[in-house]
């Protein structure tokens, strides 16, 4: 009886092996190795809107990979950075500055695979120097000795990147301006400018380029809300483009996982436009494949900044 049972089981096994390969629900070696997909996300699941968005996204990635998807929620940038660097998660979406931090920690063990290309074709955004339209300032040179607002000490577009470009252009931001301070956020920076606290402020600008103008940024959002009037402002200088956020994977995961998740995410705006919009991506935008090279300027910027701090050149 025992022998007979063994023969039957072996036969069942062989029969199943013969059916493998093109089953609708994948169950191959890489899925067994992974067990689940662990993705780092930012935001609070207490917010029903975010929960709805993440649930749809999780369902899509789960169906595409054939694996359960576990979301690791982090309330700040650093949480996502550390989760990926430590290998606690397999994949995460993060700003260029965040990826530069991961790259500094684990190098080739993490790789950016996708970024968003906007409808207009750009894969980045800009820092802009905003002044009041009725002010006499027409170029950055006109701001020598004047007051300047930055967004935040850790902001790529609102602090790090424009300062780096200024230095490249022969302007030392620490001595060129009469006084500079942090507004605390993009919206606060525009408000402070509007209230006369600064002569100029650094802002983020996107949805276009210096030649054709911009369509996104805090001052556009505030104008839509009726808080400010766009005609009251003028951008007199820009720095960029700054690479958009990256989808970053751990390279010590199976290559088929990386290919499958990259394919599924790249196909999302075409396969399921509603989920694409639900995760906050704009209509007409799509993912495009990138490599570490795309983020080289940010990686260099971060390295330079750290080196300058260690040498005591910057506070």
């Amino acid at each position: 009886m025992r022998r007979r049972s063994g023969v039957i089981l072996a036969a069942i096994g062989l029969g199943l092996a013969g059916c493998g390969g093109e089953a609708k629900a994948p169950g191959g070696a890489w899925q067994s190795q992974m067990g689940e997909v662990r993705m780092a996300v930012r935001g609070s699941e207490d917010d029903p809107m975010i929960t709805r968005r993440l649930t749809a996204y999780k369902t899509y990635i789960g169906k595409a990979t054939g694996l359960p998807v576990k979301l690791y929620e982090s309330s700040d940038y650093n949480g996502t950075i550390q989760a990926l660097s430590s290998g606690q998660v397999d994949i995460a979406t993060m700003a260029g500055g965040g990826y530069a931090n991961v790259d500094a920690q684990i190098g080739d063990l993490a790789q950016p695979i996708l970024t968003v290309r906007q409808a207009e074709g750009d894969t980045g955004y800009y820092s802009g120097l905003l002044v009041m339209a009725d002010s006499p300032y027409r170029s950055i040179q006109d701001l020598k000795g004047k007051t300047l607002g930055y967004v935040d000490f850790n902001s790529t577009s609102g602090y790090l990147f424009p300062r780096s470009v200024m230095r490249e252009q022969g302007i030392d931001p620490d001595t060129f301006f009469g006084k500079s301070s942090f507004a605390g956020g993009h919206t606060q920076a525009v408000m402070a400018l509007d209230n006369g606290q600064f002569d100029a402020t650094i802002i983020q600008a996107g949805g276009g380029d210096p030649e054709h103008g911009f369509t996104t940024g805090a001052h556009f959002t505030m104008a839509r809300r009726g808080v400010v009037d766009l005609d009251d402002f003028r951008i007199i200088w820009t720095a960029g483009p700054i690479p958009n956020s990256a989808v970053v994977v751990r390279t010590d995961r199976p290559q088929p996982f990386i290919d499958a998740v990259r394919g599924a995410m790249a196909a999302l705006p075409y396969d399921d436009p509603e989920v694409w919009r639900d995760i906050g991506q704009p209509d007409g935008a799509a993912y495009t494949a990138v490599t570490r090279e795309h983020y080289t300027p940010i990686i260099k910027l971060r390295a330079d900044d750290i080196a300058a701090r260690r040498s005591g050149e910057r506070q």
């Binding site: 994948p26 899925q31 290919d259 394919g263 599924a264």
Partner: peptide, 13 residues
Amino acid sequence: SDDRRFRLIGIHV
């Protein structure tokens, strides 16, 4: 299969 389709897309993009 979704597995093969998405891997093909991921490789090509």
